[in-house]
């Protein structure tokens, strides 16, 4: 329940708690945002805005509605998508790379100094194509199960089972 206390403190405008949560999630948010905007500087900028927004609207988070991480990731996706819709962004990025997160992870050099980097690289290399799309849509793009089922033309039950198996694999890879 340590995380819950941390989030509570954050909601009470405790800067230390804010910094800890930032440390836990900033890379994840930047990764999700980057996967959408595909520009390092813009990703950084959007990621900062996301945490500023989170701090300013901390009251609006409720544990009953979902995980804090999930709340943050929702803000991040929305902010990133908003960014891609902005005129300035459209002008500078005519052709977005259509690669999945998998390609991003595989080409990351900065991951080498991270403990889990090897596990995750191994994971995505081995990752079956059927997993790539599901993870991409559900975690990086924020599709609902219904939206993902329509996008991939699969029954919702299949999405659930497939996703579970893919995440199971990931867990074995990074958590041992």
């Amino acid at each position: 329940m340590q995380l819950e206390q941390l989030v509570n403190k954050f909601q009470q405008k405790d800067i230390k708690a804010f910094e800890t949560l930032y440390g836990m999630y900033s890379d994840s948010m930047q990764g999700v945002i980057y996967n959408i905007v595909r520009d390092q500087d813009i990703a950084q900028e959007v990621m900062q805005d996301v945490f500023i927004k989170a701090w300013n609207s901390a009251d609006s988070y409720s544990a009953k509605k979902g995980r804090f991480f999930t709340w943050l990731i929702n803000i991040s996706r929305n902010a990133a998508i908003d960014k891609t819709r902005s005129k300035a962004f459209k002008n500078s990025k005519q052709n977005l790379n259509s690669d999945y997160f998998v390609d991003i992870i595989q080409t990351q050099d900065s991951l080498d100094d991270q403990t889990d980097a090897i596990g995750i690289k191994k994971f995505v290399t081995k990752l079956a194509d059927k997993c790539k799309a599901v993870i991409e849509l559900l975690y990086f793009k924020g599709y609902t199960q219904k939206e993902a089922s329509e996008e991939l033309d699969m029954p919702i039950g299949t999405i659930k089972t497939r996703n579970r198996n893919c995440i199971k694999e990931l867990r074995e890879m990074v958590l041992g």
């Binding site: 910094e19 930032y22 440390g23 836990m24 999630y25 900033s26 890379d27 994840s28 948010m29 930047q30 990764g31 999700v32 980057y34 996967n35 390092q40 990703a43 950084q44 990621m47 900062q48 945490f51 995980r67 991480f69 990731i73 997160f101 991003i104 992870i105 990351q108 900065s110 991951l111 991270q114 889990d116 980097a117 995750i120 690289k121 994971f123 995505v124 993870i135 975690y139 990086f140 995440i167 990931l170 867990r171 990074v174 958590l175």
Partner: peptide, 22 residues
Amino acid sequence: DIETAIVKLTAAASPKPSKFLF
């Protein structure tokens, strides 16, 4: 456990370290 795995997966897609931006 699921959350931890997803945190790590998504973090792996981050092109740059971000901690210093706090």
